[in-house]
């Protein structure tokens, strides 16, 4: 389970990565998950050519963006596999926030659970922020006020569910949160057992051997 540090405000340069549909297989390919080098080789296909030589011009390795904590990504960032390694790799590269027009839903949820903030902004704002990132501007991302600010003062408000915001600000994790609701869970569980007996309880005790079932054979 990830350690989550409270996150209030990020003041940093931003790495521009405008390609749409960057999937979690690109972020952490299965080969690199298996050999344990998924942070070192995060975004491998974008950063290295087929012979393993660094691709010139890849913003992720550009020294101009050293220590950047914000990633500005193309639409549908983090689509594909549910692998949480993708978020761990983004975090491992030093990012605390990803800004995009849209995210893969599972990736976005995984971000929150690792203390990374996925910020959704409209296309026009993304275009402006990509420009700002490319010219080396420092951006300010304020989670408390839910706003991204450019150096010149242009600002873009974003939405974030209130509980997620609190969790980020205080470094809370869902497990602790829900363990605290154990009584409510138990109450629900017994009521539901009576109301939907086919869904729990009897249902799971009533397995028939495959051979006696009409199906699936």
């Amino acid at each position: 389970m990830p350690e989550i540090a409270p996150l209030r405000r990020i003041v940093s340069k931003a790495v521009p990565l405008p390609l749409p549909n960057i999937d979690t297989d690109i972020i952490t390919p299965m080969e690199r998950i298996m050999d344990g080098k998924f942070v070192e080789f995060a975004f491998e296909a974008l950063r290295f050519d087929a012979d393993g030589a660094p691709r010139p011009g890849c913003a992720l390795d550009d020294p101009a963006y050293r220590d950047a904590e914000i990633l500005i990504a193309g639409a549908n960032f983090g689509c594909g596999s549910s692998r949480e390694t993708a978020v761990w790799a983004v975090k491992g590269l030093g990012f605390k926030a990803v800004i995009s027009e849209s995210f893969g839903d599972i990736f976005s949820s995984n971000c929150f659970r690792n203390g990374i903030v996925p910020v959704v902004l409209p296309a026009a704002a993304i275009t402006a922020l990509l420009d700002a990132a490319q010219s080396g501007e420092t951006l300010t991302l304020d989670i408390e006020r839910r706003v991204v600010e450019q150096e010149g003062g242009d600002r873009y408000g974003f939405e974030i569910p209130p509980l997620r915001r609190t969790a980020l600000l205080e470094g809370l994790d869902d497990l602790q949160l829900s363990l605290r609701l154990a009584d409510e869970i138990t109450t629900f569980e017994s009521r539901d057992r009576a109301e939907r007996p086919w869904a729990q309880g009897v249902a799971m005790e009533s397995e028939r051997p495959l051979g006696t079932a009409r199906k699936p054979e």
């Binding site: 549910s82 599972i106 949820s109 869902d174 497990l175």
Partner: peptide, 10 residues
């Protein structure tokens, strides 16, 4: 629906 590994533990 699919979930991440932190959610799996929860």
């Amino acid at each position: 629906w699919g979930i991440g590994s932190t959610e799996v533990v929860q």
